[in-house]
Computed example of a mutant assay.
Amino acid sequence: MSILRQICLALALLFASMGSAQAHALEPGFLELRQIAPESFRVFWRKPDVNGAPMAIDAVLPETCTPTRGNDPQFDGAAWVSAWVAECPGGVSGGRLWIEGLESQRTDVLLSLQLLDASGTTHRLTPEATGYDIPEELSTWGVFTSYFQLGFSHILEGLDHLLFVFALLVLIRDPWRLLGAITAFTVAHSITLALASLGFLSVPGPPVEATIALSIVFLAVEILKREQGAERMSERYPWVVSFTFGLLHGLGFAGALNEIGLPEGDIPAALLAFNLGVEAGQVAFVAVILMALMFLRMALPRLREAARAPHSVTTNVMGYAIGCVATIWLAQRVAAF
Rank of each mutant, 00 (worst) to 15 (best):
residue 203 V to A: 06
residue 155 I to P: 00
residue 26 L to C: 04
residue 210 A to V: 09
residue 18 M to W: 14
residue 47 K to E: 10
residue 285 F to V: 08
residue 189 H to L: 11
residue 264 E to M: 14
residue 146 S to G: 10
residue 272 L to M: 10
residue 217 V to K: 01
residue 248 L to W: 02
residue 221 V to G: 10
residue 225 K to T: 11
residue 202 S to E: 12
residue 182 I to T: 04
residue 103 E to C: 07
residue 278 V to Y: 00
residue 305 E to K: 13
residue 251 L to V: 02
residue 4 L to T: 06
residue 128 E to C: 05
residue 49 D to I: 04
residue 324 C to V: 06
residue 80 W to S: 07
residue 249 H to F: 03
residue 79 A to L: 08
residue 229 G to I: 11
residue 185 F to W: 01
residue 332 Q to F: 04
residue 141 W to Q: 06
residue 245 F to L: 03
residue 133 D to I: 13
residue 287 A to K: 03
residue 20 S to P: 00
residue 59 A to L: 11
residue 212 I to M: 03
residue 278 V to E: 02
residue 154 H to E: 04
residue 113 L to M: 11
residue 41 F to H: 08
residue 51 N to E: 12
residue 317 V to C: 11
residue 79 A to M: 09
residue 293 L to T: 02
residue 90 G to H: 05
residue 162 L to V: 09
residue 298 M to V: 13
residue 37 A to L: 07
residue 311 H to Y: 00
residue 213 A to R: 03
residue 291 M to V: 10
residue 246 G to Q: 02
residue 272 L to N: 01
residue 190 S to H: 01
residue 211 T to F: 10
residue 17 S to I: 13
residue 153 S to H: 12
residue 172 I to F: 00
residue 198 L to I: 08
residue 70 G to D: 08
residue 78 A to I: 12
residue 252 G to Q: 02
residue 257 L to F: 06
residue 46 R to A: 12
residue 332 Q to C: 05
residue 265 G to Q: 08
residue 177 R to N: 08
residue 264 E to L: 14
residue 193 L to P: 00
residue 323 G to A: 07
residue 319 G to S: 12
residue 11 L to R: 01
residue 22 Q to R: 13
residue 23 A to T: 07
residue 312 S to L: 12
residue 265 G to F: 04
